[in-house]
Design a protein around this nucleic acid. Structure first.
Lengths: 139, 139
DNA sequence: GTATATGCAAACCGTTTGCATGGCT
DNA sequence: AGCCATGCAAACGGTTTGCATATAC
């Protein structure tokens, strides 16, 4: 791990006033260590941390992902009823979901033009707009 | 129940070559008996069937909703990781999701203009585009 | 008569929680 | 020292499944 990787992860945690514990640093590094955006599931992130040689319990992965979420560092994306996905990019943007293997990736937001949004009922405001483009293999 | 209600439900099942059992007719009637579109959860539909005096087991509600889905009579909508929603309207259209109570309703599709969609990667085609506008109470 | 649908209860699986231990400041 | 994070295992809740019974055709 390069020094920049560690520093980026530390600052990311510091930004949200989260104590830089070994486990959080490990997960933060896996999430944003290289400055790229990522979409992970709890199981997937846990597997990655084990593969990286860091010992983090599955429960801690869940608790930590939730903590990151509440701190606004990541966002949950609902695309599959059976799994939760977390996105390191926190602004509203469209996603591609590969039905074949359950992979989630960012779609090019610039290509997505929502000219008009349905008017929210009175008394309500838009919290978030989720756009998921589900993809299947072309035959 | 009016005769039209029963006939509509029967034809709806017949359209998909599904045997008109008592349970299926009951659920079909609750879903499309009045010709309106509906968004239900398995638990909600089960409660409705019990309230209507029809005895249908929860397992059968699940199996039946799945069967209706596979037959193309309804579509599953993923908006909440903890529950599955089913929509009697089967074309792509935007939804309003009330975070406060988990209600799902159709948004006015005419007001929703997607001028451009992100280009799918080569080898893949768009299976479905889910648009969920999450609403929160305005303070 | 044969294939299929139903009901029950148990299994399932991702996620959450209680509580004792350990680490950060 | 005090508060907070971690880990384990048990609990949880929605959904699925195996199997015996009942129903449609």
């Amino acid at each position: 791990m390069t020094p920049e990787t560690l520093e980026r992860s530390s600052k990311w945690l510091a930004r949200a006033n989260l104590r830089p514990t070994r486990q959080r640093l490990s997960l933060a590094t896996l999430l944003v260590g290289d400055g790229q955006h990522r979409h992970v599931t709890a199981e997937g992130l846990h597997a990655a941390s084990v593969a990286a040689g860091d010992k983090v319990s599955l429960a801690t992965v869940y608790n930590t992902l939730r903590a990151f979420c509440e701190a606004g560092l990541i966002k949950e994306v609902t695309v599959d009823g059976t799994r939760s996905y977390f996105d390191t990019r926190t602004d509203d943007h469209p996603h591609f979901y590969y039905e074949e293997d359950g992979t989630l990736v960012d779609a090019n937001a610039a290509q997505m033009k929502i000219a008009a949004l349905p008017t929210p009922p009175t008394g309500y405001e838009v919290a978030k707009v989720d756009v998921v483009v589900r993809l299947r293999k072309r035959d």
